[in-house]
Design a protein around this nucleic acid. Structure first.
Length: 275
DNA sequence: CGTTACCCCTGGAGGC
DNA sequence: TGCCTCCAGGGGTAAC
């Protein structure tokens, strides 16, 4: 479920509760996620304090670097991961793999498909961690714009959609927001990135930014619910224009939305509105 | 470089 | 009711 907006909404949902709190311990029920959770996490975390929670791409970064033996907790929610805050003693349900224990609350990670990742980085310089070092630009950063995209795609010929989803180039854009951003920009997902003008790249960068920001804002309206409930509220708050709508009328021209397969993923677009 | 296939996992939907 | 196949919002690797 999580692309950048969902991760950011989760982060904001935790901000009122966790920073400044001491970690009492950790319970790892299932060490085998996509990568193995480092052993001894409980001993390593106990006594550390979470000073801040940041985000890099789809990674949530818990800054526990201030104390002796401190470092950073890196969390990727994969395809099906979600976080919730529950009262201490709340029984774990199926797929509740990890608890971070605080004195008055528990941060619980649920991830049915176990494509998530939970890693520990010793020391303060988290950006050097291998999972983060090769990541591309943040699409909500000030220096991300059409000119940047245009320059970054010179010398490449791949279709634009798989490129948008390549986190070595731009982070955080998954299958849904790639499709929605391209629809808003009027660009075909099949178009080679070398055949898009600077003007159209500007429009695309703007579409990416506004799509992500609108989604965060929509999820943000129910941040508490997202983190505190056991439902998926916070996702899908914005209806999609083309994603998942194969055969349905395009919201702009009413011709049927088409589905194709690119790089092993479903792509939805309007062949009339997107060129 | 770009594309494809396959891997990690579970669960839901739909066909029979 | 079961059993089968396909699909899913992520990402890594290897092969061609």
């Amino acid at each position: 479920m999580p692309e950048l907006p969902e991760v950011e909404v989760s982060r904001r949902g935790l901000l009122p509760y966790l920073p400044g709190k001491a970690i009492v311990g950790a319970i790892v029920r299932t060490p085998r996620l996509r990568l193995e959770i480092p052993s001894g996490l409980d001993a390593r975390l106990a006594g550390l304090r979470i000073d801040a929670i940041s985000r890099r791409g789809k990674y949530l970064l818990f800054d526990c670097a201030s104390g002796r033996g401190g470092g950073w907790l890196l969390l990727h929610l994969g395809m099906s991961g979600s976080l919730r805050l529950v009262p201490p003693g709340t029984p774990a349900q199926k797929h509740d793999h990890v608890d971070l224990l605080f004195d008055t609350t528990v941060l619980r990670l649920r991830d049915p498909r176990r494509f998530g990742v939970l890693l520990w980085h010793e020391g303060a310089d988290v950006e050097t961690h291998p999972a983060l070092a090769a990541l591309g630009i943040e699409p909500l950063a000030d220096n991300f714009d059409g000119d940047w995209l245009y320059a970054a795609t010179r010398g490449r010929r791949a279709p634009v959609k798989p490129l948008l989803m390549d986190h070595r180039l731009v982070v955080g854009i998954g299958n849904i927001y790639a499709a929605e951003s391209l629809f808003r920009a009027g660009i075909s997902p099949l178009r080679g990135c070398h055949r898009i003008s600077p003007d159209r790249y500007r429009r695309l960068a703007e579409s990416i930014r506004t799509t992500l920001e609108a989604s965060i804002a929509a999820g943000g309206s129910s941040v508490r619910d997202y983190v505190h409930s056991d439902g998926g509220a916070g996702c899908f708050q914005l209806s999609c224009a083309v994603y998942g709508r194969q055969g349905e009328p395009c919201p702009r021209c009413a011709r049927p939305v088409r589905a194709v397969r690119q790089a092993g993923r479903s792509t939805f677009y309007c062949p009339a509105c997107q060129r």
